[in-house]
Design a protein around this nucleic acid. Sequence first.
DNA 1: TGCTAAATTGACGTTCACGTAAAGATGAGG
DNA 2: CCTCATCTTTACGTGAACGTCAATTTAGCA
Lengths: 138, 138
Amino acid sequence: MSLRIGQVALRSGVTPRTIRYYEELGLLPASDREQGKHRTYTESDIERLKEVTRLRDLLGLSLDELRSVVVAEAVRADARRRFHASESPDERRAALEDALPHLETQIGLVRRREAELKELENDLVDRRKRVLRALREL
Amino acid sequence: MSLRIGQVALRSGVTPRTIRYYEELGLLPASDREQGKHRTYTESDIERLKEVTRLRDLLGLSLDELRSVVVAEAVRADARRRFHASESPDERRAALEDALPHLETQIGLVRRREAELKELENDLVDRRKRVLRALREL
DNA sequence: TGCTAAATTGACGTTCACGTAAAGATGAGG
DNA sequence: CCTCATCTTTACGTGAACGTCAATTTAGCA
Protein backbone atom coordinates (compact mmCIF):
# COMPACT_ATOMS: atom_id res chain seq x y z
CA MET A 1 0.00 0.00 0.00
CA SER A 2 3.02 2.27 -0.06
CA LEU A 3 3.84 4.38 -3.06
CA ARG A 4 7.16 4.90 -4.72
CA ILE A 5 8.68 8.07 -6.01
CA GLY A 6 7.55 7.59 -9.60
CA GLN A 7 3.90 7.27 -8.73
CA VAL A 8 4.05 10.16 -6.33
CA ALA A 9 5.72 12.29 -8.97
CA LEU A 10 3.12 11.46 -11.58
CA ARG A 11 0.20 12.05 -9.31
CA SER A 12 1.46 15.34 -7.97
CA GLY A 13 2.64 16.81 -11.24
CA VAL A 14 6.35 16.97 -10.61
CA THR A 15 9.35 14.81 -11.45
CA PRO A 16 11.19 12.39 -9.16
CA ARG A 17 14.14 14.73 -9.34
CA THR A 18 12.05 17.51 -7.88
CA ILE A 19 10.92 15.30 -5.02
CA ARG A 20 14.48 14.34 -4.14
CA TYR A 21 15.54 17.96 -4.43
CA TYR A 22 12.78 19.12 -2.12
CA GLU A 23 13.68 16.43 0.35
CA GLU A 24 17.29 17.61 0.22
CA LEU A 25 16.18 21.18 0.88
CA GLY A 26 14.03 20.09 3.79
CA LEU A 27 10.82 20.97 2.00
CA LEU A 28 9.73 17.37 2.28
CA PRO A 29 10.45 15.06 5.19
CA ALA A 30 13.21 12.53 4.64
CA SER A 31 11.42 9.36 5.63
CA ASP A 32 13.92 7.24 7.48
CA ARG A 33 15.15 4.38 5.35
CA GLU A 34 18.43 2.61 5.00
CA GLN A 35 20.91 3.98 2.51
CA GLY A 36 20.10 2.96 -1.03
CA LYS A 37 16.63 1.65 -0.26
CA HIS A 38 13.67 3.02 -2.17
CA ARG A 39 11.77 5.95 -0.76
CA THR A 40 8.20 5.12 0.19
CA TYR A 41 5.25 7.46 0.44
CA THR A 42 1.62 7.53 1.44
CA GLU A 43 -1.42 9.25 0.04
CA SER A 44 -1.04 12.04 2.52
CA ASP A 45 2.49 12.64 1.26
CA ILE A 46 0.97 13.32 -2.12
CA GLU A 47 -1.43 15.82 -0.62
CA ARG A 48 1.42 17.46 1.18
CA LEU A 49 3.50 17.73 -1.96
CA LYS A 50 0.59 19.19 -3.87
CA GLU A 51 0.20 21.76 -1.14
CA VAL A 52 3.85 22.68 -1.40
CA THR A 53 3.72 23.16 -5.15
CA ARG A 54 0.57 25.19 -4.82
CA LEU A 55 2.24 27.50 -2.34
CA ARG A 56 5.30 27.61 -4.56
CA ASP A 57 3.26 28.65 -7.56
CA LEU A 58 1.02 31.16 -5.83
CA LEU A 59 3.25 32.88 -3.31
CA GLY A 60 6.32 34.53 -4.74
CA LEU A 61 8.84 32.76 -2.53
CA SER A 62 12.12 31.01 -3.13
CA LEU A 63 12.26 27.39 -2.08
CA ASP A 64 14.36 28.48 0.84
CA GLU A 65 11.76 30.93 2.02
CA LEU A 66 9.08 28.41 1.29
CA ARG A 67 10.75 26.03 3.67
CA SER A 68 9.87 28.03 6.74
CA VAL A 69 6.27 28.10 5.60
CA VAL A 70 6.33 24.42 4.86
CA VAL A 71 8.15 23.27 7.92
CA ALA A 72 4.86 24.49 9.23
CA GLU A 73 3.22 21.93 6.99
CA ALA A 74 5.37 19.26 8.53
CA VAL A 75 4.44 20.35 12.00
CA ARG A 76 0.80 20.34 11.03
CA ALA A 77 1.06 16.89 9.50
CA ASP A 78 2.79 15.66 12.62
CA ALA A 79 0.13 17.29 14.74
CA ARG A 80 -2.52 15.44 12.77
CA ARG A 81 -0.69 12.18 13.32
CA ARG A 82 -0.34 12.82 17.03
CA PHE A 83 -3.97 13.79 17.19
CA HIS A 84 -5.13 10.55 15.66
CA ALA A 85 -2.58 8.44 17.48
CA SER A 86 -3.63 9.58 20.88
CA GLU A 87 -6.77 9.16 22.94
CA SER A 88 -5.72 11.58 25.61
CA PRO A 89 -7.64 14.85 25.34
CA ASP A 90 -4.61 16.72 26.61
CA GLU A 91 -2.36 15.38 23.90
CA ARG A 92 -5.03 15.96 21.32
CA ARG A 93 -5.44 19.53 22.45
CA ALA A 94 -1.70 20.05 22.29
CA ALA A 95 -1.61 18.68 18.75
CA LEU A 96 -4.35 21.01 17.62
CA GLU A 97 -2.78 23.97 19.30
CA ASP A 98 0.48 23.23 17.51
CA ALA A 99 -1.18 23.14 14.14
CA LEU A 100 -3.09 26.36 14.53
CA PRO A 101 -0.39 29.06 14.38
CA HIS A 102 1.10 27.56 11.24
CA LEU A 103 -2.25 27.68 9.57
CA GLU A 104 -2.51 31.31 10.61
CA THR A 105 0.88 32.06 9.11
CA GLN A 106 -0.07 30.55 5.81
CA ILE A 107 -3.41 32.31 5.74
CA GLY A 108 -1.66 35.57 6.49
CA LEU A 109 0.77 35.17 3.61
CA VAL A 110 -1.97 34.27 1.19
CA ARG A 111 -4.07 37.25 2.24
CA ARG A 112 -1.21 39.69 1.88
CA ARG A 113 -0.66 38.44 -1.60
CA GLU A 114 -4.33 38.75 -2.37
CA ALA A 115 -4.31 42.31 -1.14
CA GLU A 116 -1.41 43.25 -3.38
CA LEU A 117 -3.14 41.73 -6.35
CA LYS A 118 -6.37 43.48 -5.50
CA GLU A 119 -4.54 46.78 -5.41
CA LEU A 120 -3.08 46.09 -8.82
CA GLU A 121 -6.49 45.13 -10.11
CA ASN A 122 -8.00 48.33 -8.81
CA ASP A 123 -5.33 50.39 -10.54
CA LEU A 124 -5.97 48.63 -13.81
CA VAL A 125 -9.72 48.92 -13.52
CA ASP A 126 -9.34 52.61 -12.76
CA ARG A 127 -7.38 53.12 -15.90
CA ARG A 128 -9.92 51.24 -17.92
CA LYS A 129 -12.62 53.41 -16.47
CA ARG A 130 -10.77 56.52 -17.56
CA VAL A 131 -10.29 55.16 -21.05
CA LEU A 132 -13.95 54.28 -21.33
CA ARG A 133 -15.00 57.68 -20.08
CA ALA A 134 -12.72 59.36 -22.58
CA LEU A 135 -14.26 57.25 -25.32
CA ARG A 136 -17.77 58.26 -24.34
CA GLU A 137 -16.77 61.89 -24.31
CA LEU A 138 -15.69 61.90 -27.92
CA MET B 1 14.80 67.31 -17.40
CA SER B 2 15.68 63.86 -18.68
CA LEU B 3 16.77 61.12 -16.33
CA ARG B 4 19.63 58.75 -16.68
CA ILE B 5 19.75 55.06 -15.95
CA GLY B 6 21.13 55.39 -12.42
CA GLN B 7 18.34 57.65 -11.25
CA VAL B 8 15.69 55.54 -12.91
CA ALA B 9 17.13 52.43 -11.30
CA LEU B 10 17.15 53.98 -7.86
CA ARG B 11 13.67 55.33 -8.11
CA SER B 12 12.16 52.14 -9.42
CA GLY B 13 13.91 49.75 -7.13
CA VAL B 14 16.03 47.88 -9.63
CA THR B 15 19.63 48.05 -10.84
CA PRO B 16 20.91 49.59 -14.07
CA ARG B 17 21.82 46.10 -15.18
CA THR B 18 18.21 45.03 -14.87
CA ILE B 19 17.07 47.97 -16.94
CA ARG B 20 19.51 47.15 -19.73
CA TYR B 21 18.54 43.53 -19.54
CA TYR B 22 14.85 44.32 -19.79
CA GLU B 23 15.52 46.58 -22.73
CA GLU B 24 17.43 43.76 -24.38
CA LEU B 25 14.50 41.39 -23.82
CA GLY B 26 12.06 43.88 -25.24
CA LEU B 27 10.38 44.44 -21.91
CA LEU B 28 11.33 48.07 -22.07
CA PRO B 29 11.44 50.19 -25.23
CA ALA B 30 14.89 50.87 -26.60
CA SER B 31 14.78 54.64 -26.87
CA ASP B 32 16.56 55.53 -30.06
CA ARG B 33 19.95 56.97 -29.35
CA GLU B 34 23.27 56.80 -31.10
CA GLN B 35 25.59 53.96 -30.17
CA GLY B 36 27.42 54.60 -26.93
CA LYS B 37 25.34 57.59 -25.90
CA HIS B 38 23.65 57.54 -22.53
CA ARG B 39 20.12 56.24 -22.29
CA THR B 40 17.63 58.91 -21.26
CA TYR B 41 14.31 58.44 -19.58
CA THR B 42 11.26 60.35 -18.45
CA GLU B 43 9.05 60.16 -15.41
CA SER B 44 6.59 58.01 -17.29
CA ASP B 45 9.36 55.55 -18.05
CA ILE B 46 9.76 55.13 -14.33
CA GLU B 47 6.06 54.48 -13.93
CA ARG B 48 6.21 51.97 -16.71
CA LEU B 49 9.15 50.16 -15.18
CA LYS B 50 7.44 50.04 -11.83
CA GLU B 51 4.42 48.54 -13.54
CA VAL B 52 6.56 45.89 -15.12
CA THR B 53 8.20 44.90 -11.85
CA ARG B 54 4.86 44.84 -10.16
CA LEU B 55 3.50 42.47 -12.76
CA ARG B 56 6.69 40.44 -12.52
CA ASP B 57 6.35 40.09 -8.78
CA LEU B 58 2.65 39.39 -8.63
CA LEU B 59 1.93 37.26 -11.66
CA GLY B 60 3.94 34.08 -11.86
CA LEU B 61 5.36 34.68 -15.32
CA SER B 62 8.79 34.40 -16.86
CA LEU B 63 10.19 37.58 -18.33
CA ASP B 64 9.53 36.08 -21.74
CA GLU B 65 5.89 35.53 -20.95
CA LEU B 66 5.75 38.89 -19.29
CA ARG B 67 6.86 40.47 -22.53
CA SER B 68 3.62 39.72 -24.30
CA VAL B 69 1.75 41.28 -21.42
CA VAL B 70 4.05 44.23 -21.40
CA VAL B 71 4.26 44.81 -25.09
CA ALA B 72 0.70 45.63 -24.24
CA GLU B 73 2.08 48.27 -21.91
CA ALA B 74 4.09 49.70 -24.77
CA VAL B 75 1.08 49.81 -27.00
CA ARG B 76 -0.87 51.51 -24.26
CA ALA B 77 1.85 54.04 -23.67
CA ASP B 78 2.02 54.72 -27.38
CA ALA B 79 -1.74 55.02 -27.48
CA ARG B 80 -1.54 57.63 -24.74
CA ARG B 81 1.06 59.52 -26.66
CA ARG B 82 -0.99 59.42 -29.85
CA PHE B 83 -4.03 60.49 -27.92
CA HIS B 84 -2.34 63.57 -26.53
CA ALA B 85 -0.50 64.34 -29.73
CA SER B 86 -3.59 64.47 -31.84
CA GLU B 87 -6.58 66.76 -31.94
CA SER B 88 -8.53 64.62 -34.34
CA PRO B 89 -11.34 62.79 -32.54
CA ASP B 90 -10.92 59.88 -34.93
CA GLU B 91 -7.28 59.42 -34.07
CA ARG B 92 -8.02 59.87 -30.43
CA ARG B 93 -10.73 57.26 -30.59
CA ALA B 94 -8.37 54.89 -32.37
CA ALA B 95 -5.75 55.40 -29.68
CA LEU B 96 -8.18 54.63 -26.91
CA GLU B 97 -9.52 51.60 -28.69
CA ASP B 98 -5.99 50.31 -29.04
CA ALA B 99 -5.29 50.65 -25.36
CA LEU B 100 -8.44 48.97 -24.17
CA PRO B 101 -7.91 45.28 -25.06
CA HIS B 102 -4.47 45.29 -23.47
CA LEU B 103 -5.93 46.60 -20.27
CA GLU B 104 -8.50 43.84 -20.43
CA THR B 105 -5.79 41.23 -20.86
CA GLN B 106 -3.94 42.44 -17.83
CA ILE B 107 -7.06 42.63 -15.74
CA GLY B 108 -7.92 39.10 -16.78
CA LEU B 109 -4.56 37.74 -15.74
CA VAL B 110 -4.69 39.49 -12.40
CA ARG B 111 -8.18 38.22 -11.70
CA ARG B 112 -7.31 34.63 -12.52
CA ARG B 113 -4.45 34.82 -10.12
CA GLU B 114 -6.67 36.33 -7.47
CA ALA B 115 -9.15 33.49 -7.93
CA GLU B 116 -6.46 30.87 -7.46
CA LEU B 117 -5.29 32.55 -4.31
CA LYS B 118 -8.81 32.86 -3.02
CA GLU B 119 -9.30 29.14 -3.52
CA LEU B 120 -6.15 28.44 -1.57
CA GLU B 121 -7.27 30.79 1.17
CA ASN B 122 -10.63 29.05 1.40
CA ASP B 123 -8.95 25.69 1.76
CA LEU B 124 -6.74 26.99 4.53
CA VAL B 125 -9.58 28.71 6.33
CA ASP B 126 -11.62 25.52 6.10
CA ARG B 127 -8.89 23.59 7.78
CA ARG B 128 -8.56 26.16 10.48
CA LYS B 129 -12.27 25.95 11.06
CA ARG B 130 -12.03 22.21 11.51
CA VAL B 131 -9.16 22.57 13.93
CA LEU B 132 -11.04 25.15 15.95
CA ARG B 133 -14.15 23.00 16.03
CA ALA B 134 -12.13 20.02 17.20
CA LEU B 135 -10.64 22.15 19.95
CA ARG B 136 -14.06 23.24 21.14
CA GLU B 137 -15.24 19.67 21.18
CA LEU B 138 -12.60 18.57 23.61
C1' DT C 1 38.02 73.35 -21.74
C1' DG C 2 39.21 70.07 -18.41
C1' DC C 3 37.72 66.98 -14.63
C1' DT C 4 35.22 63.39 -12.83
C1' DA C 5 31.17 60.88 -11.71
C1' DA C 6 28.30 58.09 -14.11
C1' DA C 7 27.26 55.52 -18.31
C1' DT C 8 28.38 52.18 -22.32
C1' DT C 9 29.48 47.70 -24.34
C1' DG C 10 31.26 43.10 -23.86
C1' DA C 11 32.12 39.28 -21.52
C1' DC C 12 32.34 36.17 -18.01
C1' DG C 13 30.43 34.71 -13.29
C1' DT C 14 26.66 33.24 -10.11
C1' DT C 15 22.45 31.44 -7.92
C1' DC C 16 18.29 29.01 -8.20
C1' DA C 17 15.60 25.20 -9.56
C1' DC C 18 15.78 21.72 -11.43
C1' DG C 19 17.32 18.27 -16.02
C1' DT C 20 20.03 14.51 -17.47
C1' DA C 21 23.19 10.77 -17.75
C1' DA C 22 25.72 6.82 -15.79
C1' DA C 23 26.52 2.84 -13.01
C1' DG C 24 24.84 0.08 -9.90
C1' DA C 25 21.07 -1.58 -6.42
C1' DT C 26 16.24 -2.81 -5.27
C1' DG C 27 11.95 -5.23 -5.13
C1' DA C 28 7.28 -6.69 -7.15
C1' DG C 29 5.66 -10.13 -10.19
C1' DG C 30 6.09 -14.46 -12.65
C1' DC D 1 14.91 -17.32 -7.49
C1' DC D 2 15.17 -14.38 -11.58
C1' DT D 3 14.05 -10.63 -14.15
C1' DC D 4 13.70 -6.08 -15.32
C1' DA D 5 11.28 -1.89 -14.55
C1' DT D 6 12.11 1.35 -11.29
C1' DC D 7 14.90 3.40 -7.97
C1' DT D 8 19.50 4.95 -5.79
C1' DT D 9 23.49 8.06 -5.57
C1' DT D 10 26.78 11.01 -7.77
C1' DA D 11 27.84 14.34 -10.73
C1' DC D 12 27.83 17.31 -14.32
C1' DG D 13 24.64 20.28 -17.42
C1' DT D 14 21.21 24.05 -18.27
C1' DG D 15 18.16 28.19 -18.69
C1' DA D 16 16.57 32.19 -16.44
C1' DA D 17 17.63 36.42 -14.33
C1' DC D 18 20.53 38.97 -13.26
C1' DG D 19 25.74 40.37 -10.85
C1' DT D 20 30.26 41.95 -11.65
C1' DC D 21 34.41 43.45 -13.77
C1' DA D 22 37.18 46.00 -17.20
C1' DA D 23 38.22 49.12 -20.60
C1' DT D 24 36.45 53.03 -22.66
C1' DT D 25 33.24 56.97 -23.44
C1' DT D 26 30.02 60.50 -22.31
C1' DA D 27 28.30 64.65 -20.29
C1' DG D 28 27.23 67.89 -16.35
C1' DC D 29 29.82 71.32 -14.08
C1' DA D 30 33.69 74.52 -12.45
